[in-house]
Every structure is written in structure tokens, then in C-alpha cells.
Amino acid sequence: LPARRTAVAGGLSMEKLTAYKDATTYNNFYEFGTDKGDPVKNAATLKTRPWTVAVEGLVNKPRTFGIEELLKLSPQEERIYRLRCVEGWSMVIPWVGYSLAELIRRVEPQGSAKYVEFVTLADKPTMPGVNSRVLDWPYTEGLRMDEALHPLTLLAFGMYGEVLPNQNGAPVRLVVPWKYGFKSAKSIVKIRFVEKEPGTAWNKAAKNEYGFYSNVNPDVDHPRWSQATERRIGEDGLFAKRRKTLPFNGYEAQVGQLYAGMDLKKFY
């Protein structure tokens, strides 16, 4: 998947990339099973063509995009982001895509649109995990409008210079690098502009554990574990010390102002 290097501030981490093998075999994608080895085993059934993404709700130009059209909507860029999972591990991944803002601009949101909801595929025949009751399917996620418009918020179609492997959320997913990984919805089929804060899959499953914002924050522990440190996958083997987790996953300079005046302990 050809791409140019991004010019977006903070868009190119200089850290050592996570091995492609690790990034494509250690995944949380519950539609294909809850074990991190499940997605790579089970996601071959996912059909990524034909694929459409319906964009609807409070916009002047609602419409459905075919995946081929989405791929060409805006020039593809390479972005190297840190990925911090809420479970306490992290990776560094070179994504390919463009800012979600490019898509949002083209559908002209109305003034009343305050949030964006992302709905992902829930296809029982091809996704064995959808038969389980772990989450309320389909998996949905959401962002506040200013978060969705932030240039770092990426609509990704590829990684490591290639199209997205199925287990990583093919053919199109979101990547929001300053939030815990589960905020970055995979295999998106619908984007809806709404007035009220949308419900999200993990927030519905456990309200006190997974807030709407879920910004990476070492000072706000998950109720069941500390978020102060993380294990960088593939780093120096078994005995590597855990790293200190950074506020907003190290993107505070770029996104901190979005949350000025907000109590991040309350809006976790």
C-alpha cells in the first residue's frame, strides 16, 4: 500500500518498531475469539471485498462509500504510533491511512453533531466470537467531534506498508494513539454523527472500568489493575523491565488542550 510519510505533528514516532509477526499474532479482536492468538487463527474467514462504510446521521451529505473509493479519498500517509492496550502492554506500529478529518470534511457535519459513533462488522457466519456473550454486538465506539477531527486520529487501511491483515481490523479501522487500544474500532461498517455521547461496547459491558474517554493515563488506575507501567511487546525478552506509561500515551503536546479544564479522574 503506497504511502508518503506524514507531516502531522507527532505522527512519526522514532521508537523501534514492534516486529510485524508480534503485531499480527497478538491481537484483541473479540469477534474472532478472546484469546490473543485467536484472531490470527480465525480471521481468514473475514470477507473484505466488497465492503462499504455508511456515513449517516447529522451530516449534510450522508452517503455510503465503497472501500475502493475510501482508499482513494485522500493521499495515504505512513504514521508511526505507539499503541497502548488497556491491559498494560504496548507496541509501536507503522500504520497507513489518512486523518479521519478528511472524510468528515467531505460529508459536512451539521452544527448539532457533537459526537461520532463507529459501528463495526458483526457477522455471525464469519466471526465465531459474535456468538459469545462477552460483549453486546456489534462492537461500537465513539469520539467527541474535536477528537474525531484531530489530525492524529487516523482512518487506517494498512500497516507495515501493506494492506491491513484481517486480524488487525481489515479493511478499514480507526487508530486513536492517545487512547487505550479498544477505542480504535476495527472493520468499520458505519460512521454516525450524533448529538449525544454514544454508548460504547466496553462501557456498556463494564461502566466503572472503561469510560467513554479512556485516554491513556498513568494516574488513573483501572479498577482492577495499575496503569502506571506497561510492557513493550518484543523488547529485550523475558526480563525486560516494564516502562513507565506516559499521559496521553506521550501525545500530550498534541492533544492535551482538547481536555483543558476537564477532571480526567472523573472523565476517565
Binding site: 503485531a23 497478538y26 502492554w89 510492557r231 525478552g237
Partner: peptide
């Protein structure tokens, strides 16, 4: 190195 991406876990 056959224990996957997160050998410690």
C-alpha cells in the same frame, strides 16, 4: 522464543 509476542504472560 516460541512463546509468542508476550512470552512473560
Amino acid at each position: 522464543d516460541r512463546l509468542g509476542a508476550n512470552p512473560a504472560e
